[in-house]
Each structure stands twice: as C-alpha cells, then as structure tokens.
Design a protein around this nucleic acid. Structure first.
Lengths: 181, 181
DNA sequence: TATGACATGTAATCTGTTACATGATTAG
DNA sequence: CTAATCATGTAACAGATTACATGTCATA
C-alpha cells in the first residue's frame, strides 16, 4: 500500500472514464484526436496504465459480451476511483503547480465540473488566482535583477513566461465571472 | 550509432555549458534556482545525463587540479557538441512543437543568441509566428465545433489554450521588433 | 572532533517510447 | 481471398525520481 501515487496519464484516464466508460481503444482515439495527446497515445502506455489503475481498485474492466464484435474491455471508475479523482481535483493550487507546467492544472479544471461540480471549478480558479499573484511578483523581481546580466534572448524568454502567467490570470478572472453569472 | 537522440535535459545541459563550462554541482544549482528546475534538479538525473553526453562526445569533463578544493569535474562543450546544439536550435518550429509544450521552444530560443547568434533568435521567432497562425485557426474551429457538446469547464480550458497561444504570438512579434531595432 | 556545506555518485523502481505481435471482423 | 480496420497487448529499452552512499573541506 505504499505505491498509491498515480501518474498524470492515470488521472487523465480516470477523468475521461468517469463520465463515460470506455475501452482502451476508445481512450486512445480520444487522446490522439485532441490536445490530450501530450498524455501519450501509445498502446504501450495506455494499456499498462489501465491495468495499474485496475490493480489499485480505481477502475474495473468488464468484457463486453455478445454483440458480434470481438472482445472489448470496457472500464468503469469505481467509487474508490471517483473518490481519488475528486481528491486530486480539489487539491489546492501551489506555486509548484504553476512552475511545473500548467497542463496538470488545466486537466484538473477540465474534469472538475463533471466529476465534482461547478463549485469545485470555481475553487480551482480562485486558488489559481491566489497563487498567481505572488508568483508574478517574484518573476517581475527576478527580471529586474537579472536584466543586466542576461543576453537579450534570455530576458525575452523570461518576459514570455511572465506574459503567459498574466494571460492565465486574466483568463482565470474571466472564467470566474462566467461561473458566477 | 543508432542512439544519437538527446533528451530535453541533455540539451538543457549542453546549452548551459556552452557559454560557461561548469561542474555537475554548478548545473544543479542553476536548475534549482531558476525556472529551469522543470528539467530536473536531482543528481540521479544530471550526473548520468552528463556521462551520456560525454560518452557521445558532446562534452568533455576535466578534473580541476590543484586549488585546495576537492576533485571537481568541469565539463566543456566539444566542437561536436556545439554543432549538435546549433543544429537543434535552428530546427524549424513545427505544429508539434507548439502542442507538445512550449518549454522546449523557449529553451531553444533562450540559448539561441549565445550559441548561434541573434539571426538565429529572429529565425526562431519568425518560425513560431508562422506556425502559430494555422494553429490558432484550428483551435478556433475546434472550439466552435465542440462548443455545444462540451461542459463549461472543458470549453473554458480550451479557451485558455487559445489565449495562451495568442499571447505567445503577441510576444513573438514584440520580440522580433526588439531584435530588428 | 563533530557538524554542515561542498561535490559526486549509485541502486531500485517506475513509467513511457518504440516496435512488434496477435486475432477478429468487414470491405472489396 | 486479401487487405484494412478494430482491439488488445508484449518486450526491450531509455530516462527520471527517490533515497541513499561516499568522501572532502571548513569552522566552531
């Protein structure tokens, strides 16, 4: 019981399975046809990940019987899996979440409404807003401090980061306004 | 000679070593003190990566002699390593580069000026600008198509992506104007 | 002489990638 | 009958994380 930490791909699978039980093949198609292909669309990643989730009791696969088709295993999220998905989605947003790529945060947000409810989506947005303030502050200070010693391209790269966080902040506020309407 | 593909961490190391030969310890400090910590700041990643680069002839480590200090291996980029770094930096930007996270592109850009020259930085920016146009077009169309079937949080997540690419495009244009001044 | 910072590394484990293998069903 | 598509998997390998191990130097 020491290895209960689920990798990103695992959460992506859980989140997709929660509203709509699917086969590994279905999931692969979703990954490769959307911007979620960053979470690997290769069978060598998806099928083992599904088996791990099943072993941990997060999902359960049942072989679809009858229906002329070939064996096709459909996975469903178990109560335990749903609880874990909710726990992950409702985690507060930390500074680390911001620096270690926004993909994970956006994935949590994208799943939040169906898996937990609109209140959780708003919570994520407010938590993001709260974390972004000090983070932007820091980046601004770092820019000023490094400005003299950095080459132009390095400085511009930092400015790009700052802009992207600013745009994220604006989006978060816009999204909050949508939900509160 | 089939295994010459260098992972992101390897390029990050190459790019840092190119202007300033450093030890593994120095590199670790740079990673953990800057936003580059996304490329792992753990010794279990950095030291093996350095040895791989050395084995492939991209860098060469020399033990710093004398100077009271303890053995301290300083790595330098070899001509072969510099050539590979330049090749990687000057690769054209594809749509895939945009979807698979912008970290890699920004890393290439950040290193471009010192490793190749300002003309390469401009090339990257123009290449980005060119790739962003059709990509934004596609995302906009996908948004319209999916709008009716997506939950609010899913739609907002997509809008967040679109905004971030728009902000990137604005930044790229701003950066070009800086360079051409 | 004990502590902590410097500096480098190894081992176990986990996960993802690539490439290949398998078998059933459907279309031509 | 053959090829393509559906659907599921395996095996070999590379790379990252975590946690631990080692040894040096300064200083208190």
């Amino acid at each position: 019981m020491k290895s209960s930490s689920i990798p990103p791909l695992g959460y992506a699978l859980l989140g997709l399975l929660q509203p709509r039980p699917s086969s590994g093949y279905d999931l692969r198609k979703i990954f490769s046809s959307t911007s979620m292909k960053t979470y690997s669309d290769s069978p060598g990643a998806i099928y083992p990940a599904l088996r791990r989730l099943e072993r941990e009791g997060m999902i359960r696969g049942t072989i679809e019987d009858g229906s002329g088709l070939r064996r096709r295993q459909v996975f469903r999220v178990t109560p335990k899996g749903l609880a874990e998905l909710k726990r992950w989605i409702t985690l507060p947003i930390t500074r680390d979440d911001l620096t270690s790529g926004l993909k994970t945060i956006m994935l949590r947000f994208a799943f939040s409404e169906k898996a937990v409810g609109a209140s959780a989506s708003i919570e994520i947005l407010k938590s993001m807003e709260a974390a972004l303030g000090p983070h932007l502050q820091d980046l601004g200070e770092k820019l000023e401090k490094m400005r003299p010693v950095m080459p132009t391209s390095g400085r511009l790269a930092l400015e790009c980061g700052i802009r992207s966080y600013e745009s994220l902040l604006q989006w978060a506020r816009y999204a909050i306004s949508i939900y509160e309407k």
